[in-house]
């Protein structure tokens, strides 16, 4: 596989920074950071508390604006979009999942998943069908009529993932979605995200858990607002899914085959 991409990135940051305050007092929450994330990729972001992970996600999801640089979604510079266009982008392209409090307690799982479509003005019958479809994909069709209070934490996160991908949405930004789950449930959530990416959907996730980050195609390490390192997983053919010359420190010869496991 070559390192050049024919496809357009789903998400790009170009020298994007976020400063709070002005002048010498300004706090640099992030940046400058540049990155490209491509369709079908699962990218994990790791880093200590305060390193800028949530800030990066907020910029990527148009919840916040960079004070310098650009954020592009599917080639469109977010700075050029009107408020109405940004809102439409959040209904049709981007879904969010957070560590908790993802679902509206007064709505059933199905109603929660259908919400973005309803807000987008889709016909009621269609929102129901699509929402059920998406719940089936995360293995929760049978629990569609439960209220969030009657779902486990892991089930709630799966509903939130279904909602984040319902209808045309295909970019999921997740801030510690496994943070409140035990490791086996967290792994089930990672498996689900992985399968969503296999369908061509794109996931950017913040996690403190290295074992969960390892499910990603790429892991970015943030320190003090900067990407200080990046590791790329090797697929079974020995190719990296997305070659990034210059940024990736690895020896392909050494990693070209999945090695037989040996005792450490």
């Amino acid at each position: 596989m070559t390192s050049t991409h024919q496809t357009e990135p789903t998400l790009s940051l170009v020298d994007a920074s976020r400063l709070h305050g002005e002048g010498p007092q300004a706090v640099r929450a992030l940046g400058p950071v540049s990155l490209d994330i491509f369709p079908g990729e699962l990218v994990a972001i790791m880093g200590p508390s305060g390193s800028g992970k949530s800030t990066l996600l907020s910029l990527a999801g148009a919840l916040d604006r960079p004070t310098e640089g650009k954020v592009l979604i599917e080639g469109r510079d977010l700075a050029d979009l009107s408020l109405a266009e940004l809102a439409a982008l959040r209904r049709r392209v981007i879904g969010f999942v957070f560590q908790d409090l993802n679902l509206l307690p007064g709505l059933t799982a199905l109603e929660n998943v259908a919400l973005p479509l309803e807000l987008d003005g889709s016909p009621l019958e269609e929102t129901r069908t699509r929402a059920l479809e998406e719940l089936e994909r995360v293995g929760l069709k049978d629990l569609a009529h439960r209220f969030p209070d009657n779902l486990s934490g892991g089930e709630q996160q799966r509903v939130a993932i279904a909602r984040a991908f319902v209808g045309p949405r295909h970019l999921l930004l997740a801030d510690e979605p496994t943070g409140a789950l035990d490791s086996v449930t967290g792994e089930a959530v990672m498996r689900l995200l992985k399968s969503q990416c296999a369908r061509g959907r794109t996931v950017v996730l913040v996690t403190h858990d290295a074992a969960h980050a390892a499910w990603a195609d790429r892991v970015l390490f943030l320190r003090d607002g900067h990407i200080v390192d990046e590791t790329v997983a090797i697929d079974s053919t020995g190719a990296t899914q997305h070659g990034l010359p210059g940024q990736v420190q690895q020896n392909p010869a050494q990693h070209s085959q999945p090695q037989p496991l040996s005792p450490v």
Binding site: R191, V219, D229, T231, Q249
Partner: peptide
Amino acid sequence: QTQRAATMRRLQEFTRHKIA
């Protein structure tokens, strides 16, 4: 950092085995 990146790659490799 060097060690963390190397260990993360090892972790990714094990996880690939698990996924496969």
